[in-house]
Design a protein around this nucleic acid. Structure first.
Lengths: 140, 140
DNA sequence: AACAAAAATAGAATAATTCTAAAAATGGAT
DNA sequence: ATCCATTTTTAGAATTATTCTATTTTTGTT
């Protein structure tokens, strides 16, 4: 039996999500690809191995996963949402030049002092700039 | 002469943007409406007073303003981009229940320690949760 | 095997944004 | 003022990410 598949299944069940073939595939994809993929990338990559897969299913699954708090949706790019199954505290950096999105580990997320009565259940920080490679190219 | 219009004009010129009627109108709108409007809201509100206004112009102008660093684009909502002319350090909070987007003042933006070679030129923090009013309603 | 509930599917519909090509406005130089 | 080049605006078409709808398939239970 495949260890990864078991982890995937457990993680879904832990959040009350029935582990169908398609949901397992999307979840496994996110757990093994730390590339912050778009819904379309996930669909395109999974399609060859699940030829009956529909884009609607990918969207349905991603929405369900986000609702249940199993993955995060990243809106660092205006165009399309990106998804991330890593729930350890980290922030995202986008390189203005090459478009890469990198994880940057942090001890904990920053939650500024909020006005009275406001409760926060999640926080995201996005940094934009130039990555090391792009800075290197410019220096030459 | 109108003081606000002068401030608007100066702010555009300071960033090398020719202050056309349309650009002034969009910029003035953003400076006087701290509601984080979408492009569509800006268009709809300005249209009555500038009946020749085109949506493309609103988008062109907003893109120019963001490029030149005069306003920030806020991607706290997946659906549409929102815009903010206030460049003082503050973060945005979105209420999951009523959808309101609030400003929360901070001393300075948080920029975590980045990997070597990475340079950051801007950072945004989004917090999501429930606002005071919605929390109140739930408590009753 | 029969049935109800849940999940997946194809394709149409929606909506935000960008693109295109043409028209209008602007700002010199003559 | 007039001509010309450049910039800006415009309307509408095109694009694209996402959601919706109605149907079919799968799953689990009696």
């Amino acid at each position: 039996m495949d260890g990864v598949k078991n982890m995937v299944k457990e993680r879904l069940q832990l959040h009350g999500i029935k582990p169908s073939l398609q949901r397992m595939a999307v979840m496994e994809y996110l757990m093994t690809h730390r590339t912050h993929p778009t819904a379309d990338m996930i669909f395109t990559d999974l399609y060859p191995s699940i030829p009956t897969l529909s884009k609607a299913t990918v969207y349905n699954t991603l929405n369900l996963l986000v609702e249940r708090g199993v993955v995060r949706m990243i809106t660092i790019e205006e165009k399309n949402a990106r998804f991330d199954a890593c729930m350890d505290p980290h922030i995202h950096f986008r390189c203005r030049d090459c478009g890469a999105i990198l994880d940057v580990d942090v001890e904990a997320h920053w939650i500024p002092t909020m006005p009275d009565g406001v409760t926060v259940d999640m926080s995201e920080t996005y940094c934009i700039g130039s990555c090391a490679e792009c800075n290197n190219k410019k220096a030459i």
